[in-house]
């Protein structure tokens, strides 16, 4: 087994690690916070607060 074979296994392991990090955090967030809060984002907030578009 040469260096490249080891790198292949390392790449699989790191890929699994990043996937687990994302999925576990997503599961934690989805079970901790209310879905209404998570999906409460609204478009155009900066315009509503800062710009009236009046010339």
């Amino acid at each position: 087994m040469d260096t490249w074979n080891i790198l292949e296994y390392a790449a699989w392991a790191l890929s699994a690690l990043f996937a687990i990090l994302m999925l576990s955090d997503m599961a934690r967030i989805d079970t901790t916070y209310d879905n209404d809060l998570l999906t409460s984002s609204r478009e155009g907030e900066i315009e509503a607060e800062a710009e009236r578009h009046v010339i």
């Binding site: 040469d2 490249w4 292949e8 790449a11 699989w12 790191l14 990043f18």
Partner: peptide
Amino acid sequence: QGHSGLNQQPFIVLAIMFLAW
């Protein structure tokens, strides 16, 4: 470097996973 037939799949998957993370 003399290593023929590299399995590209783990590196493809790693690139996408790392950047998504």
